[in-house]
Simulated scan of single mutants.
Amino acid sequence: MIRIKKSLQKRKVKIFLIFLFFSSMSWFINKLSEDYTGRAVFDVLYTNVPDSLLFVGASKDHIDVKLKASGFTFLGFGFKNKTVTIDVAKAQQEEGTYFVPRSGYQLQIEKQLPQSMEFMGVDEDDAIVLEIYSLKTKKIPVTQRLKVDYSQNFMLEGEIVIQPDSILIQGPEAMLDTIMGIQTEEKTINNITEDFKEELQLQIPENNSTIKYASTSIFVSGKVVRFSEKIIEVPITVTNTPEDFEIKLFPDTVKIVCSAKIDDLKTLHESNFKVIADCSTIQDNAQNGILLQLVSAPEMIKDVRLMSNEVRYILKRK
């Protein structure tokens, strides 16, 4: 009998708890169906920045918004990432300052809210001030830093070619005025026996994101040819001989070592060179020696040098 009474009491408690649960749920659902006024903080994302402008930041990173909606809407809204976008292209400008007035960003926020929510406004009275700069464009030269180690008997023909040899940069005018050029990375290539083309990365400063670079790398190329050496004997031309004097050189020719392409060496002649002995350079204490100067040589010669830089002389009065 006692066991039966205890079983009935437990059953009544369970039935009571079930009714209590459903009653509470009914009350909770009724409350959620009612409209409430509340607040939500939205993170602000600035978009649609014109290409002619540089956006750095703004006076507001988030906005406190007053809303009206049902409890169900607020409950679901609380689990979402609350972000609104502000169109920078719709900003106004006054005395060089860009801003979005309160009415402007309120309208943009309202359009982004779900239809189940009523926008009640924002507490802030001030406009959103944008840190924006007009962008200018400037062309700066590129300095390449490729070191080429040619194999024996090989050399560069002509000049090293940089493509492009200058690039466009874009940014605030005050910053552009401080940039005169840009260098490439350092790189070495060894034992080169043929034409080469290397890509070099530009050394773009990492701490200056306000400057935009049209390119991040350039190409360096060169034509490589085989060369040889040839010795040519050239007569020495005397200049500035003192009046009433004559000079005799010993010897009156000098040998020149030329490095160039084999085909170019075949065309060389002594008339392609000019070596002078300038008497005005003779010092009073000179020991019968006069310095030689190579004053002209063909441009196609890669390297040229005199085998002797001085000759003996005798100066006699006429």
Rank of each mutant, 00 (worst) to 15 (best):
A277K: 05
L156K: 11
V142S: 02
F245E: 04
L32P: 08
L292T: 05
S259P: 00
E194A: 13
K230Y: 00
D51E: 13
K68W: 09
E194N: 15
K66V: 06
T83F: 02
K212A: 12
M155Y: 09
Q287V: 11
R145V: 02
S308K: 07
I160D: 04
S217T: 13
K138C: 05
S23F: 15
P205I: 09
L315W: 09
F28M: 11
T143D: 03
M117T: 05
A277H: 09
Q203L: 15
L75A: 12
P50S: 08
V13Q: 05
P242A: 14
I262W: 00
A260V: 01
I189L: 03
Q170I: 08
A174F: 14
Q92G: 02
F196A: 01
L20G: 00
L306F: 01
D61P: 00
V304G: 03
A40C: 14
D278L: 08
T188F: 02
N240S: 10
I132Y: 01
F99A: 10
V224W: 01
L107F: 14
V65Q: 02
D123C: 09
S296L: 01
I182H: 09
K10E: 00
K5I: 12
K139E: 14
I169A: 09
S33D: 15
E185P: 00
F72Y: 11
I192D: 07
G181A: 08
M180N: 13
T267A: 13
L107Q: 14
S116W: 06
V44N: 03
A174Q: 09
L315T: 04
V65P: 10
K223S: 05
K68T: 07
Q106E: 15
F196T: 00
K90C: 07
Y36C: 06
V295G: 03
S59D: 01
T137V: 14
K66S: 10
K111Y: 05
P114Y: 08
M117S: 05
Q163N: 15
T237V: 15
N30F: 08
L146A: 04
Q293F: 14
C279Q: 05
I211Q: 03
Y150W: 06
G171W: 06
S7I: 00
